[in-house]
């Protein structure tokens, strides 16, 4: 079943067209990959889906509801969240506080419930804390609970950012180069983690990545971008054979066997 649909999505910055007439769909429960050379418009598409950039032309539908004119926090509330290429944690807060802050959508008590410590506040706050604790355990971050986010090793910061995103119980999770700066061993662990997240949290994943092992290893469907346009789409086997993709990555003379 279709979860996300991009229709003729276009984004221009002044005279520069960063994304041009891109169409693709993401199916529920799938892991999809978004690849392409640097500057192809991958992160721009993430920024458009999450509402950080305004769409110039075209449309984005999430569960058949148009979301391209909505504010980022509304889109997040509908079940789409993301991580960033350059990690954006709440740096001076602890690991636990990072996750707990993101849990706020699972509670609905008001400011006066909090100020007067009413029953609703106490019950919901207890539930939030339990949930945040469970999430840290699932993501194997419990041991780092009270460490300040900034002091974590790089790989764990990435994992914490994913944990924070999962605190929203998202339907669609966008990962922007989650394996950047990781060694092959860490990348393998990350692949398993992404699969586990899909299975245990039941969320759909769209991932931007340059590590081809990761993309080819976990994706059901791959979308290739080049110069803001969609170049190809299909399962990993098909993409690997596609002459257009090989040309975009290696240049014309790089054709195998040529």
């Amino acid at each position: 079943m279709e979860l996300l649909r991009l229709e003729n999505l276009t984004k221009t910055f002044g005279g520069l067209t960063a994304v041009k007439d891109v169409n693709f769909t993401v199916n529920e429960g799938s892991i999809s990959g978004l690849i392409g050379p640097n500057g192809a418009g991958k992160t721009t598409i993430f920024n458009l889906i999450t509402g950080i950039y305004k769409v110039t032309r075209g449309a984005i539908y999430f569960q058949n509801v148009p979301i391209h004119d909505k504010e980022p926090h509304v889109i997040a509330g509908m079940g789409i969240t993301r991580t960033f290429q350059n990690i954006r944690l709440f740096k001076n807060l602890t690991v636990y506080q990072n996750v707990l802050t993101a849990c706020h959508h699972n509670a609905d008590y008001g400011i006066f419930d909090a100020a007067l410590r009413l029953k609703k506040f106490r019950r919901q706050e207890r539930e939030l804390k339990e949930f945040a604790g469970r999430l840290l355990e699932l993501m194997e971050l419990s041991g780092w609970k009270d460490k300040v986010a900034n002091s974590l090793p790089y790989g764990l910061q990435r994992r914490l950012e994913i944990a924070r995103a999962l605190a929203l119980k998202p339907k669609l999770l966008l990962l922007d180069e989650p394996a950047a700066g990781m060694n092959p061993d860490e990348t393998r662990q990350l692949m398993n983690l992404i699969r586990r997240i899909r299975d245990e949290f039941g969320c759909t994943i769209l991932v931007i990545e340059h590590h081809m092992d990761l993309i080819m290893g976990i994706c059901d469907n791959i979308i290739v971008l080049n110069f803001g346009k969609k170049l190809a789409e299909g399962p990993p086997e098909k993409i690997q054979q596609d002459p257009l993709v090989i040309e975009a990555y290696l240049g014309e003379g790089g054709m195998p066997g040529a």
Binding site: T81, L89, Q97, T101, H104, Y109, I111
Partner: peptide
Amino acid sequence: FLINSRHGRSMIAVREEELAAKVIGID
């Protein structure tokens, strides 16, 4: 009491990293 509630945490999130606060659904 305000600071130790989800509302206070959301305000701190605004201080720490506004863009990240937005994408985790904080208005």
